[in-house]
Structure formats: C-alpha cells, structure tokens
Design a protein around this nucleic acid. Structure first.
Length: 160
DNA sequence: CGGATTTGACCTGCGC
DNA sequence: GCGCAGGTCAAATCCG
C-alpha cells in the first residue's frame, strides 16, 4: 500500500510521517480525566467537546487533539455498546498513526456526510474486541478523526 | 508461507 | 413496506 496521495510538501516534520515515538496510551488518560470530572461528563443531551492541545508529541511536532468522549450508555439504548467510545480529532497527514497497537483494516466505506472514505479497523489481537474508525474531517482534510470503540483486553502489543 | 490489505457484496437498522 | 446509509464479511491479491 503505497498510497501517498497525501504526501503534501507541507510536511510537518519533513521526514517522519509516522510518529514512531509517542505512546497512544497517553490518549487513554483522557478517559480517566473524564472520570474524575463527572460534572463534565458528556451526555446525549449535553455533549461536551473538550479540546486538548498536545504540543509535545515526540518533542518534534505540534499536534492539536480534540477529544470527544461519547458515553452512549443510555438506559433506553437498544444498541449494545462494547464499552467506551472515544473520538479523536488529530492533525495528521496520514490516517495510519502508530498508536502502539496493530490494526487490521476490514472495510472501507464512502459516507454521505463527507467526500472522504471512512476506514474500519479491528485490533489484530484475537481476544481484543476493540474497533477503530478513521475518517478525514469534512472541512479540514488535514485533520483525521479517529473513533475508538471498546477496551483492549491486552496491556500492549508487546505483551501479545 | 503467513499475515495484512483491498474491494465489492451482503446485512441490518432507521426514517419516511 | 421501501429505500438509504452505515457497518461487516469474505475471497482474492500483494508484500515481507
């Protein structure tokens, strides 16, 4: 897969399009953060869209992450949710960010809401029910919206 | 050879 | 009841 259609000359780092250093587990801290701020707990009635700026990723690039935590745990919900549902909005040229886990793409779909295709990934670990949805922002193709669904059953890919 | 990727088809839920 | 949109599967293909 050598699709480098997004190889824009406006490279953030010049060489490394894949941040090889940062631990994606850092993102998961946001979930804890939410847990400690129940007053900020977003609901289906009052969604909260906190914006977190991370300017120390790998120490070489500045990234802005908008975190949208969705707790669609309504008692009347007919859908069965795998657990947590977290959406990240990340400024990146590539959608395949090295978050430390191994993902296997299992689908691609063109969504009506966006001119860009939406990609579906699943954690390569068999026990892991975690799914990931990646799509580009409709208004800002430079941004990638990543939605995680579920919780990893394993500590880290290194522990497989 | 094994694992990952691709792409179209199929299935399900929801709205009208 | 029908159509649309989103989500998932699975066979074929490619790469390391």
């Amino acid at each position: 897969m050598s699709n480098t259609s997004f190889g824009s000359p406006d490279s953030l780092e010049g060489d490394h399009v894949n941040q090889p250093d940062f631990e994606f587990s850092d993102y998961l801290i946001f979930d804890d953060w939410l847990d400690e701020n129940p007053t900020s707990m977003p609901t289906t009635q009052n969604p909260v869209y906190p914006t977190i700026e991370v300017d120390d990723f790998g120490g070489s690039s500045t990234s802005h992450h908008q975190v949208v935590l969705t707790r669609d745990h309504g008692s009347g919900s007919l859908k069965k949710d795998l657990g947590e549902k977290v959406a990240f909005k990340t400024k990146s040229e590539v959608e395949i960010l090295d978050d430390g886990f191994r993902w296997r793409k299992y689908g691609k779909k063109m969504v009506k809401n966006s001119p860009n295709p939406r990609n579906y990934y699943r954690c390569s670990v068999q026990n892991c029910p975690v799914k990931k949805r990646v799509e580009r922002d409709r208004e800002d193709p430079r941004y990638v919206i990543t939605t995680y669904e579920g919780i990893h059953n394993h500590l880290s890919p290194s522990n497989i």
